[in-house]
Design a binder for these strands. Structure first.
Lengths: 193, 193
DNA sequence: ACCTGAACACCGTTCAAGT
DNA sequence: ACCTGAACACCGTTCAAGT
């Protein structure tokens, strides 16, 4: 049977979930698909492009969200539901290889614009939110995966300490609040002019 | 002459500046130092640890800053002044290998606590700020380096579009503002109780 | 059009053995 | 204590040649 892009991405996602990003290599993927390593390069220009496609598979469903908080929560959930999902998407976003992350950015910018920011500032606000979600979740997931294969967790020091959801929402709240503040001060200076 | 940690880190930093992070390999570094690759493993447990030491060299001077805005501006400047500095520090921070980034985190948390947040929330606020600075600067630096070896920049669309400093300060303002908001609402709810 | 085979030019890490 | 030499087990990518 002919190798399709879909097959490749599907198998790559399985490999990712079972063995993690470090073991998701072109050679290992080719072996799993019973093709030669070179075959993958007929379907994808390079590894980055392939990883971008896998990232977009991980992010499936996220683009349907609207509103800053909704988008961010769905994004984080998607990242956490695959081994090394946050790291993969973070790298693909940085490399400009994730179409879904571009849509996410646009959705966040639209939401920010709704609060009264002009397009340029709304873009900046959107990126700031994305940096937060990716940074937070990469961090969270590495800790989760580290002490998943480890000792029993030490006794919680505070409710906040192990309620990752609450921690996530706090930072998100800081951002949403800050954006509202920036929007209203922009409106204020406009109304003065 | 005996190989010292300092020599290794110094040469690594030169390699980083001249050829970038992708070409900063243990083998290449050993070649540059005229030692066998194995020699590096007597001084450093692994590549991550060595990169952490290089990251801390890049961050030299940043720990002296006080106040959120001051710390962030110095941090960004340090990252921008070395090839792939942002990516290196970002990775080392995520891996928990940068002592200076731990100090930066502590300094930011202290500044956040000064606004009236309790210790746990101040920590979260500090991390949020770090995610922003690293995310923003990784992005900025990859664009800078991409079109450094490229075409002349297209004509600027707006003042904001190519004033990276202003863009950086905007996001920083959003965060500082959001943190102030979180602090004052915490104080308010306390005074109600 | 799609894939194989084989090569090219590398990696990080380990470890017996040397000095 | 500090380092070499050599090995182990891999990488991503290219490309003539096959079907």
């Amino acid at each position: 049977m002919q190798l399709t892009k879909r097959d490749v991405v599907e198998t790559a996602a399985t490999l990712l979930d079972d063995y993690g990003l470090a073991d998701l290599t072109m050679r290992r993927l080719a072996r799993e698909l019973d093709v030669s390593p070179g075959a993958l390069y007929w379907h994808f220009a390079n590894k980055q492009e392939l990883l971008g496609a896998v990232a977009d598979r991980v992010l499936d469903g996220v683009q349907a969200a609207v509103g800053v908080v909704d988008v961010c929560i769905r994004l984080r959930n998607a990242l956490l539901s695959h081994t090394d999902g946050a790291e993969l998407v973070s790298a693909s976003f940085a490399a400009g290889q994730s179409e879904v992350m571009k849509q996410v950015l646009a959705a966040l910018a639209a939401a920010a614009a709704d609060t009264g920011l002009d397009a340029a500032h709304a873009q900046l606000a959107a990126r700031t939110v994305v940096y937060y979600v990716l940074g937070f979740t990469v961090d969270e997931q590495s800790r989760l995966q580290w002490d998943a294969a480890g000792a029993d967790l030490p006794d919680e020091q505070s409710v906040l300490a192990d309620d990752a959801d609450a921690r996530f929402r706090f930072g998100l709240g800081v951002l949403v609040n800050g954006i509202r503040g920036a929007a209203s001060s922009a409106t204020a200076s406009k109304s003065v002019v």
